[in-house]
């Protein structure tokens, strides 16, 4: 499944004194099976953009196409769009509301009008996907779980609709290092199992580790797009935008400044280790 944004502009409260354009003329495509990272400052329009992917927001100008069909055209089933493109908001655990975990996860499938049996199967499958044991969790109140567990339940609530594309807004925000790592592994696992993933993230280190492609937003516009190698090759541009770059990129920039022949485009730790080791061995060779 492919999502295409064509010249999408979104203005909040147009015509009012509070009018504000959040994204402007954005063209981008989410390709099937990719892990796309959306990067940018708070207020750069990432979240607004994400809400266009499943039709929650309607572009003020431009079109959003799902497999070539305009999702805001008459005759396009919005519910089906929202099923296909699952959107997980920031701090999704703040949207839990049911008495039990199972009921909460079942909310989506029920809204799809699925039978009780099918719903139950979906709930089991979704909880399993987020690494929670159905028998342990199903009857517990979602409000007595730990923060990390609550977030998993919330994500299961979206997965239970069997989306083809999963859009996550800052899925690791506010978690401690261990839960963070588990959350990222979980998302990476979903991607490997065939889901298309779009992840909004502030952490360039996470983008470097997991994304297959990244789009950089600045002031409502998509200013860079490409594989992490390409994006991080322009680490200086990211820095100029006030964005973080992976620590390894910072190291590369600094080493080259100091005149060491550290290769460009290195952004993963293992690559940096290899590069440093070969520099070191060369150095020893000269002595």
């Amino acid at each position: 499944m492919q999502i295409t944004l064509e010249n999408v502009t979104h203005t909040y409260q147009p015509g009012s004194p509070f009018q504000a354009t959040a994204i402007r003329n954005v063209n981008m495509t989410v390709n099937p099976g990719e892990f796309l990272a959306l990067i940018g400052h708070t207020g750069s329009g990432k979240s607004t953009l994400a809400q266009h992917l499943n039709g929650l927001l309607k572009p003020t100008e431009g079109r959003v196409l799902l497999d070539g069909q305009d999702i805001h055209e008459k005759g396009c089933d919005k519910k089906e769009v929202r099923r296909k493109v699952g959107l997980v908001f920031q701090y999704p655990e703040h949207q839990l509301f049911e008495e039990t975990v199972a009921k909460d996860v079942a909310f989506g499938p029920k809204n799809l009008g699925l039978s009780a049996g099918e719903t139950d199967a979906r709930v089991r499958e979704a909880l399993e996907k987020v690494g929670l044991n159905y028998d342990d969790m199903a009857e517990r109140s979602p409000f007595e779980l730990s923060g990390g567990q609550m977030r998993r339940v919330a994500i299961a609530g979206v997965l239970a609709m069997r989306p083809e594309c999963l859009v996550l807004d800052e899925p690791a925000a506010g978690l401690d290092p261990q839960s963070r790592e588990e959350m990222l592994q979980l998302i990476s696992g979903l991607h490997e199992a065939g889901s298309t993933v779009v992840m909004i993230s502030h952490s360039m280190d996470d983008v470097a580790r997991f994304a297959t492609r990244a789009v950089v937003m600045e002031k409502g516009e998509a200013v860079m797009a490409g594989a992490p190698e390409e994006i991080f090759r322009h680490a200086d541009r990211l820095v100029a935008m006030g964005l973080d770059v992976p620590k390894v990129c910072q190291l590369g920039l600094r080493l080259r400044e100091e005149g060491l022949p550290f290769p460009e485009g290195v952004f993963r730790e293992e690559d940096a280790a290899a590069a440093l080791l070969s520099l070191w061995k060369e150095g020893k060779g000269h002595v």
């Binding site: 809400q51 908001f89 909310f107």
Partner: peptide, 11 residues
């Protein structure tokens, strides 16, 4: 935000 999130789950 909650309303949007629930809408995303078909509410």
């Amino acid at each position: 935000k909650i309303m949007k999130a629930q809408t995303a789950r078909g509410a």
